Simulated assay, not measured.
Amino acid sequence: MSVLLTGGTGMVGHNIKEHQNASNYCVLSPSRKELDLTNRDQIRSYLKANTPEYIIHAAGLVGGIHANIANPSKFLLENLEIGCNLISEAARIGVKNIINLGSSCMYPKNGPNPLKEEYLLNGLLEPTNEGYAIAKIAAQRLCDYLRIEDNSRNYITLMPCNLYGKYDNYNPKRSHLIASIIVKLHEAKINKDKSVEIWGDGSVRREFMYAKDFADAVWFALPRIKEMPHIINIGRGEDYSIFDYYKKISDILGFEGTFTFDLRKPTGMKQKLLDVKKINDLGWYPMHDLELGIKKTYAHYLDCHR
Rank of each mutant, 00 (worst) to 15 (best):
P72K: 02
M106Q: 15
E89N: 07
K109D: 12
P72H: 01
C105Q: 14
P112G: 01
N97F: 04
A91N: 11
S88P: 03
N85M: 02
L115P: 04
R92I: 11
I87L: 05
Y107W: 03
L115Q: 15
S104P: 07
G94W: 10
K96I: 06
M106T: 13
I93T: 02
G83M: 06
N79C: 06
S103Q: 10
V95M: 08
I99G: 01
F75P: 03
P112T: 03
G94R: 05
P72I: 09
C84D: 13
F75E: 05
I87D: 00
N110W: 03
L86Q: 07
K96T: 03
E89I: 11
I87W: 01
I98N: 12
L80Y: 12
R92D: 09
L101S: 08
N110A: 05
C105M: 12
L101A: 07
N97E: 04
E81K: 14
P108Q: 01
L101P: 05
I82D: 02
K109Q: 12
A91Y: 05
N97P: 04
C105L: 09
N110G: 05
P114L: 04
I98P: 13
N85A: 01
G94M: 07
N85V: 01
N79V: 06
I93N: 00
E81N: 14
S104A: 11
E89W: 04
L86F: 01
N97H: 08
R92T: 15
E78L: 14
V95L: 07
P108W: 04
I99R: 13
A91H: 08
P108R: 01
P72L: 07
E89L: 06
E78Q: 13
S88W: 00
K74M: 10
P108K: 01
N97V: 06
S73D: 14
K96A: 05
F75R: 05
L115N: 11
C84P: 08
N100R: 15
L86K: 03
C105V: 14
M106L: 09
I99H: 10
I99M: 11
K109N: 11
I82Y: 07
G83S: 15
P112N: 02
C105D: 11
G102D: 08
I99A: 02
E78D: 12
S88D: 13
V95W: 13
S88E: 13
M106I: 13
I82Q: 13
P72W: 00
K96S: 02
L86H: 06
P114K: 04
C105P: 00
A90T: 09
E78G: 03
P114Y: 05
L86R: 00
V95K: 04
L76G: 06
G83V: 02
L80W: 06
G94T: 07
I82M: 14
I98S: 10
M106V: 10
N85L: 00
K96G: 00
N110I: 03
G83A: 10
C105H: 14
E78P: 03
A90E: 09
N79K: 05
